[in-house]
Simulated assay, not measured.
Amino acid sequence: MKFLLKLFVLALLLQSFQCEDNNSNPITLEQLNFKKQEIIDYIAGFECNNSENCNTIALGVKPCGGPVEYLTFPSSVNLNELEAMIESYNQLNLEYNIQTNAVSDCAVVLPPQTVECDNGGCEIVVN
């Protein structure tokens, strides 16, 4: 009888130390879209002078791995701040993929080969 009581107490203790359930606050597509728009709006606050001032950065996390897309930005952007925003978005995107058991086409998205400055903003040139 003492063994069963000890086993019961042990089970209760182990249950109290269980890991927190990550699905208690599921991430929504609206949250992802809002964070992405914040990044786009941040970049839009800076202008480029010429195409040499334009750069690209990977955004998003495909369930198979690799970025979802690339954004362009002028070199006048605070790169540390932009990278922190991207990292935060990518972490949220990864958690969303896990929570929703997301799948993707697993196609590799390559960085754009050519970006140019057009009317003060950097844009991808599609060949």
Rank of each mutant, 00 (worst) to 15 (best):
M1A: 12
K2G: 10
K2S: 11
K2Q: 10
F3N: 11
L4Q: 04
L4R: 11
K6G: 09
K6L: 11
L7V: 08
L7W: 09
F8Q: 04
V9H: 00
V9K: 10
V9W: 15
L10D: 02
L10E: 06
L10A: 12
A11V: 10
L13H: 02
L13A: 08
L13K: 10
L13N: 03
L14R: 01
S16F: 04
S16K: 05
Q18C: 03
C19L: 14
E20G: 11
E20A: 15
D21Q: 09
N22W: 12
N22D: 12
N23K: 14
N23R: 07
S24V: 15
N25K: 14
P26M: 03
I27S: 05
T28N: 14
L29I: 07
L29Y: 02
L29F: 06
Q31W: 08
L32I: 06
N33Y: 07
I39D: 00
I39E: 04
I39R: 01
I40M: 08
I40W: 01
D41N: 14
Y42L: 11
I43N: 05
I43F: 09
A44E: 08
G45A: 05
G45I: 02
F46M: 05
E47Y: 07
E47Q: 07
N49W: 00
N49Q: 12
N50S: 13
E52H: 13
C54M: 05
I57V: 13
L59H: 01
G60D: 00
G60W: 02
V61L: 05
K62R: 01
K62L: 07
P63C: 04
G65M: 12
G65P: 02
P67V: 11
E69P: 05
E69N: 10
E69I: 12
Y70G: 12
L71K: 03
L71E: 02
T72P: 00
T72I: 05
F73C: 01
F73D: 01
F73G: 06
P74N: 02
S76C: 13
V77N: 01
V77P: 00
N78G: 00
L79S: 11
L79G: 02
N80P: 03
E81I: 10
E81Y: 08
E81K: 14
E83K: 14
E83V: 04
A84D: 08
I86G: 08
E87M: 10
S88Y: 07
S88D: 15
Y89E: 10
Y89P: 01
N90F: 03
N90P: 04
Q91F: 15
Q91Y: 13
N93R: 11
N93G: 08
N93V: 00
E95F: 10
E95I: 14
Y96S: 09
Y96I: 04
N97Y: 11
N97Q: 03
N97S: 08
Q99F: 09
Q99R: 06
Q99D: 01
T100W: 01
N101T: 09
A102T: 11
S104N: 13
D105W: 14
C106W: 06
C106R: 02
C106Y: 03
A107C: 04
A107V: 12
V108C: 00
V109T: 10
V109K: 08
L110W: 03
P111L: 04
P111H: 02
Q113N: 15
T114W: 08
V115E: 06
V115P: 04
E116V: 07
C117Q: 06
D118Q: 15
D118Y: 04
D118E: 15
N119Y: 12
G121Q: 10
G121C: 05
E123S: 07
I124V: 13
V126Y: 09
N127A: 14
N127G: 13
N127F: 06
N127M: 07
